[in-house]
Design a protein around this nucleic acid. Structure first.
Lengths: 190, 190
DNA sequence: ACACCTCGGTTCAATGAACGAATCTACGCT
DNA sequence: AGCGTAGATTCGTTCATTGAACCGAGGTGT
């Protein structure tokens, strides 16, 4: 059939940004990664928090897992259940997502102020635009970031269980719900 | 007709990242911004360098201009010609694009090494993953970055005039071709 | 004057991806 | 058996992207 077969890759671009965007630039993908940083791990929780079509979510989780951004792992057997967690490679995306979030906050922000606050967990200081702690003078890895809603948050826009859980302060990367049996002894601060 | 009218925004997301992605997350958009950092300014040059459909390019340039990321300005009158240049708001996206480019280089890179080198223009030192100069110990604004092809560049993949011009080292934000009459006395280092 | 070229678009039919509702499977509970 | 939940897959409709054709303004060549 000699299909032209193109469509979703930027393959005629000799550029690492284009390669990254082939993987991460599709609709919904970076919001899935954002939710993973916020502690979302289960299919159902991504689904209700993102309002994403089921087929699209399944495809994105598979792509991200195949690319080594997420890891799929079993957390219970009796009804077999898996969770999707960020790998080291996925956690490196914090240095992309955080500045982009801040850019959106500055230029497309809500009138009341930031929609969400990110602070250095060990000292409580809010992070600067670069993701560093002004008090400690160092870059803060996502596992050391505590997040909570800010004054610009639109209470009442969403009411799913994930949005409710996200109204309490908590650390990035830590599971929103206590569904994980263990494996939390490995360092998540990378 | 009661159209559901949805489709391209993430409007049910109370999140600044989602707002940023509504604007920047569409196909081609971030590659247009990348080209603007590389010094591309004219419709035709974006067109031949990106292999982007004309209608999509026109739409993206309009959207980015409307959002204040690019500014459209006349640079000659006789045949009226405009160029699209990054605004201060657009130049702030360097802190997003550079880390994402490095992430792609690390994890989706070409075998020969980096496809493109970014160095501190005043001292020649290559930037680190965060976009800072290891020698000077400071963050380097895009206007102070010199770029040139790296060992992983695929010579021969593209042969348009823009790709050819990009084979010589040059500073980010400076026009690739000398078409601009003036207005280069304003600081571009922000 | 006339043909022809470039630049910066717009229009349009075909394709492909996203959407959202319905369905399916595996498993547990009562 | 009947019901519920989690994690998908299937499928018809809608919507965006693609790529080729066309258009208009403004040179340039003869």
């Amino acid at each position: 059939m000699l299909t032209v077969a193109l469509g979703k890759d930027y393959r005629r671009q000799d550029c690492s940004l284009a390669k990254a965007l082939e993987l991460l630039g599709e609709r919904w993908t970076l919001l899935v990664v954002r939710d993973a940083f916020l502690g979302v791990r289960r299919y159902r929780d991504f689904l209700v928090h993102l309002d994403i079509p089921r087929a699209v979510l399944a495809e994105r989780l598979q792509t991200l897992t195949g690319a080594g951004v997420l890891e799929r792992r079993r957390y219970q057997d009796s009804p077999p259940r898996d969770e999707y967690v960020l790998t080291a490679r996925g956690r490196e995306l914090w240095t992309v997502l955080y500045p982009l979030t801040r850019w959106g906050e500055r230029h497309l922000g809500s009138p009341g102020g930031p929609r969400r606050i990110y602070a250095h967990a060990s000292c409580g200081t809010e992070l600067d635009d670069a993701g560093a702690c002004p008090a400690c003078g160092c870059a803060v890895p996502p596992g050391d970031v505590e997040t909570r809603p800010g004054p610009g948050a639109d209470v009442g826009l969403r009411d799913d269980p994930v949005s409710q859980a996200l109204r309490r302060p908590h650390r990035l990367l830590e599971p929103l719900f206590g569904q994980s049996i263990a494996a939390e002894n490995v360092s998540l601060s990378g």
